[in-house]
Design a protein around this nucleic acid. Structure first.
Lengths: 202, 202
DNA sequence: TTATGTCTAATGAACGTTCTATATATAATA
DNA sequence: TATTATATATAGAACGTTCATTAGACATAA
């Protein structure tokens, strides 16, 4: 092979995807050109096209990789013992930390919610969220046997994610402080709100 | 003027913006071309450029218009009398209905949270959300005097908005039903959760 | 006459993609 | 082992398209 840059094709593909993920997260599908990605990996666009048939495929593979990385990390959080309250508290703490640590995953998720077609959303739901979502829903059932577990699981995730989503905006809203972006602060607030309602928060 | 298509420049500008808003909401800034917009209004791109100096300006004006439309609608919801609980219930019901009725506003908001620069986010915060956000925060203070009103106001908005955001995804998640997209169902769930916590939901 | 609204046509840049060539590794063969 | 053939990884250059934007002309209202 000509002046090999990578160990093999798999290495090349992984390197490309790892460079592509943060770029797609930051700028979206149409905000990143194949030339940009090629330049970032220091290969020609022709070489990039040797490894991926087209941009859409590269995007899908990047998305799948970003999601696969995280799906693994979330999967064992709820398996531990404890009262439902304890397990909820622990889940929220870990989920918040996970989502704020690596923003690529969260931002790609938001982009998919905005622009994803049915195929990509189904993939996302079934291969990334489904099992963990079911666990959270089950936990909700333990805490409130007659509640709508689906609605409740969405609410739990939404509380955490919306605080992270609004990070760039909240500094301009009344009472906004940097500490409101601290995952621990968010997690504690969300946990309290879920377990006790507004009145229980002070 | 040559074969006048509009009553005057203001009419032209408004017509263009009204065509642009849903397009920018659906496809984002880079997903809509000036050609597309010109075609939609049945004018040439040159004419479009006669009314707007560049694409960025057209986008900003469209955004500002979409936001101004809604800011008005939200502004008087909390002025009414009643117990804090009653006012919260009413606010959530109206906010949910408003946000689900016209999705352009909500989607543009989501896009700004993803891609908005500091200038646009500040504009959004100060000219659209600030006063109403303060009202919600104040209401939270009435319900829980020692709580962090900023965090609470974000949580309230987030609960509603996240349910709407996840509309295209929830059908693929366990327990998802069409009725979960009903604004009344969402509002009732959110209100209950806020006032009573998870346990109060069943 | 002058300012305004409109058009056709063009410009230059960026983009996704492909053509063609070449250097290297691997496998088959003598 | 030495030689040849094949497949793979790479790059330079170009193609065709679309894009934002502009130049210049023309028509009409004031």
């Amino acid at each position: 092979m000509a002046r090999a840059k990578f160990l093999n094709s798999t290495d090349a593909v992984n390197t490309i995807i790892n460079e592509a993920i943060p770029r797609f997260a930051k700028a979206g599908f149409s905000g990143v050109s194949m030339r940009d990605i090629a330049k970032a990996v220091d290969i020609s666009t022709a070489t990039l096209y040797h490894h991926f048939p087209d941009k859409q495929t590269l995007y899908l593979r990047s998305m799948a990789q970003a999601f696969a990385d995280k799906a693994e990390g979330i999967s064992t959080v709820l398996a531990e013992k404890g009262t439902p309250q304890q397990r909820l508290t622990k889940f929220i703490a870990r989920f918040t930390k996970l989502m704020s640590q690596d923003s690529h995953f969260r931002i790609l998720l938001q982009r998919e919610l905005l622009d994803g077609d049915e195929t990509r959303l189904r993939l996302l739901a079934e291969q990334v969220f489904q099992s963990q979502f079911a666990n959270v829903a089950e936990l909700a059932k333990e805490l409130a046997p007659n509640c709508d577990a689906h609605l409740m699981a969405i609410s739990i995730a939404g509380l955490v994610l919306f605080h992270l989503e609004t990070t760039p905006l909240r500094q301009f809203l009344p009472g906004g402080h940097a500490e409101h972006n601290d995952p621990d602060v968010i997690a504690q607030h969300v946990t309290m709100l879920l377990l006790k309602g507004i009145k229980g928060c002070g």
